[in-house]
Write a protein that binds this DNA or RNA. Structure first.
Lengths: 369, 369
DNA sequence: CTGAAAGCGCTTACAG
DNA sequence: CTGAAAGCGCTTACAG
C-alpha cells in the first residue's frame, strides 16, 4: 500500500510533468498501471519523435543504430507492443490471415489449421476461417466482400479452392497476397505450394503391380478436383512401368465420400470378373470399399487388396489396417503460412517447398498367391 | 470509355465541389469509383453530421425516424459498410471471436467451428482459432497476451478449456465477454451452454442393463476432464435404476485416445471373469476396444457388447457399427455463438439452450442370450 | 434530436 | 538521419 502511494506522489513531483503536453493521455508508464503503453509513451521516454519509434517498429533501415537500440530497450522495459487495430487502420490492411477451404475431411482441415497456426505463433497475425461452398452461386462474392471490408494480410487456399482461377484473379485485383496449395503448378512459384499427388498414386500402382495384381480397379474423386486427375494419371503411369494398363471399365468416378465409395465398390465387386485390387482416391472411399466387400462376403486382403490415399487416423485403426498414401498436411500448412508471410513482407521468394507423398504399407494389400 | 470520361468531367463541374472542404478525400461516390465510401461521404450526401450517421450505424435510439430512414437509404444506395478496423480502434475492441479449444477430436473441433460460423455468417465478426495446450506452463499467459493486444469481442470455450476457472477469471478482469460450453453449471446462466453428459451415460447404462448385461465395465476419460466425471456418475445412476452397481474393479481411467482404449480393454478382457459389456467414455476408446477384442478372438457383439460416446463418423463406418451416444456439437457451437453475440450486444440473457445427448443403437450391442 | 471538436494509436507524405 | 503535421475512419464526451 505505502509503496504504491509513495510512487504516485513521486510521479507527480517529477519534472517530466513540466515538459510540453504530449497528445498521449496522462499516465504513469513506470508504475504497474492499468493504462496501456502507447507509441507516445515510448517516444517521450526515449526523447525521440513517435515517427522514429514507428521506424524502429517497422524495421525501417534509416535509423541511427544508437537511436534504434535505445528505443528498443525502452520498448522492452515497458513491455510495449503496438496496437494491431491502430496499425491496421493506418496500414489499410488487417492482421488477419484467412483460410479459405472446402476440403470435406475434418482431419485434413484440422491438420492444415495446425500447420498454419504453428507458423503464425508469436506473430501478430490471426487465423480466421472461411469455409467455402464452391457449388453455391455467390461464394465468390462473399469472399470478395470479406477481402474488401477486412483487408486481410493474406489468404491461404488448399485444394479445391486453390484451383479456382476467378477467385485468385479477384485477390490479385484487390492486391491481396495469397498462397495456393495444389497438385499442379497453377501460378507463379511464389504463390504455390506443390504436392506431387501423381507420384503418390504411382507408388500405389507399383505396390499393387509388384504384388502380382493385374485386374486392378481405380475409384477416383470428382472431376472437379484437380487431385482426382493427378492421382488417376499418376496411377496409370505407375502401372505402365509394369506393362499394365488401367481398364476404363474398372475406372469409376465417385465423390471422395464414404457413401460414394460404397456404391462404386458395390458396382465393381458384383461383376463376374471382379478386380483383385482397388486403388481408392482417398481413405474415405477406401473404407467404403471395406463395407461393400463385407456385404459381399469378400475377405480383405485375401480376396481383395485395397490402397487408399491420405492416411487418416481411421486408416490405422480399421481392421485390417489400410495401406495408404500419406501427404504431410500439417507441414504443408506450415509451408503455406511461411510462404505467405514472406509475400506479405515483400521478401524475395523464388520457390517454396514441395511435398512428396509416401506409401504406408499395412494389412489391406497382399500378393496374389 | 466515353461514359467514364464524361462522368469525370461532370463530377468536376458539379457545385458540390464548392461546398466547404470536408475531411474526406476527394472522391466520387456516385461513380463506380474504386475509392471506398466512408462515413463522411454518407454524411455529406445525407446533409447530416457524421455523428448522426454513426448513431444510425449503432442503432442509437435517439435519431429522428425520418433522418434515420434517409441515412439508411443513402447507405444502401452507396453500398456503404463501416470499416471494421476503424471501428475497432475507436471502440477499443476488435471484431474477432476467439475459439479457445483443446478437444483432441478433429470431428468435434470442425463441427464446433461450423456451428459458430453458421451463426457469425453475415455479421462482421470473424472467427479466430486459439488452440490451447493446458499442460503447457504458459498457456494462460499466451491467451492473456492475445486478449490484451487484440481485444477480441468475445471468447468461446468448449471443454476442457471451459473448465479452467483461472482463465475465465482472467477474461472477466479484462472485461472480455465469454461463453463456456460444459457438462456442469460452472458459471452464471448467461455464460453457460450446458450439455447433459450424465443423462447420455445413463441412457447407455439403461440400454446395456435392459439387454440383460450384469458384468459391465466402464472405461472413462481423464480425471482432468469434467465430462469423464459426469459420464461416470450418469452411468452409475442409470445402472442403479436396474439395481446394478458399477464394479470398481471394472472401472478404468484412460486418455480419451484410441491407444489408451486398447490398453484399458486389453486389461479388462484378459481377466478370467471378463465383462460382457463395456461402456467407453468416447468413440475413440470404443474403437480401441474393437482392436483389443479382435486380438483376443472375441466377437462383437456376440462375446462383447460395446457402447461409445460422441457418434463420430467412424462409429457408423466400422464393422459392426458402433452403438454410441450423440451430442449435437454443431448446434452447440451455434448456440454458444448466439449467446456470445447477445452478451456482446449487452442484451438481457437469462438462460441459454442446453443439450441432451441421444443414444444411437447400432450393431455393437446385443442381448445376453 | 443533432453537431463540432477531440481522440483511438498508429503510418504516410513531406520537410529539413 | 529525424520530426511536425495530417490522416486512416470511426466513436466518445460534451454542448446546445
Amino acid at each position: 500500500m505505502y509503496g504504491a502511494l509513495i510512487a504516485i506522489v513521486a510521479e507527480n513531483q517529477m519534472p517530466e510533468n513540466t515538459t510540453k503536453k504530449s497528445d498521449s493521455a496522462e499516465q504513469s508508464p513506470l508504475s504497474a498501471g492499468r493504462a496501456k503503453v502507447t507509441i507516445n509513451d515510448i517516444a517521450r521516454l526515449a526523447n525521440v519523435s513517435k515517427k522514429t519509434v514507428s521506424r524502429v517498429l517497422n524495421d525501417h533501415p534509416i535509423v541511427r543504430a544508437e537511436t534504434r537500440a535505445k528505443v528498443k530497450q525502452i520498448m522492452a522495459e515497458q513491455g510495449y507492443a503496438p496496437d494491431p487495430q491502430a496499425r491496421a487502420l493506418a496500414f489499410r490492411r488487417s492482421f488477419l490471415i484467412a483460410l479459405a477451404y472446402d476440403n470435406p475431411s475434418p482431419q485434413y482441415v484440422v491438420n492444415m489449421q495446425r500447420g498454419i497456426l504453428d507458423e503464425l505463433e508469436g506473430s501478430d497475425y490471426q487465423l480466421v476461417l472461411h469455409p467455402v461452398d464452391r457449388s453455391a452461386a455467390n461464394f465468390s462474392e462473399k469472399l470478395e466482400r470479406f477481402v474488401e471490408r477486412h483487408r486481410p494480410a493474406g489468404v491461404i487456399m488448399p485444394p479445391s479452392v486453390s484451383e479456382d482461377e476467378a477467385l485468385c484473379e479477384m485477390l490479385r485485383s484487390q492486391s491481396c497476397p495469397y498462397v495456393r496449395i495444389a497438385s499442379r503448378d497453377l501460378d507463379t512459384p511464389a504463390h504455390m505450394v506443390r504436392t506431387h499427388d501423381a507420384d503418390g498414386a504411382a507408388q500405389a500402382a507399383r505396390h499393387l503391380a509388384s504384388l502380382g495384381h493385374k485386374r486392378i480397379a481405380h475409384i477416383h474423386g470428382p472431376k472437379s478436383f484437380r487431385s482426382a486427375h493427378e492421382r488417376l494419371a499418376g496411377f496409370k503411369d505407375g502401372l505402365k512401368e509394369f506393362e499394365l494398363e488401367l481398364d476404363d471399365a474398372l475406372t469409376i468416378e465417385a465423390g471422395y465420400t464414404f457413401d460414394s465409395g460404397v456404391r462404386a465398390a458395390d458396382n465393381l465387386l458384383s461383376r463376374s470378373k471382379r478386380p483383385t485390387a482397388i486403388f481408392a482416391g482417398n481413405d474415405e472411399m477406401a473404407i467404403g470399399i471395406y463395407s461393400s466387400a463385407r456385404k459381399l462376403g469378400l475377405k480383405i486382403p485375401d480376396d481383395l487388396s485395397i490402397v487408399g490415399f491420405d492416411d487418416t487416423p481411421m486408416a490405422s485403426r480399421i481392421a485390417p489396417a489400410l495401406t495408404t498414401v500419406r501427404l504431410p498436411i500439417r507441414d504443408m500448412g506450415g509451408e503455406a503460412a511461411r510462404a505467405l508471410l514472406k509475400l506479405i513482407a515483400r521478401q524475395e521468394v523464388t520457390e517454396n517447398q514441395s511435398f512428396n507423398p509416401e506409401i504406408i504399407v499395412r494389412e489391406s494389400t497382399r500378393s496374389l498367391a
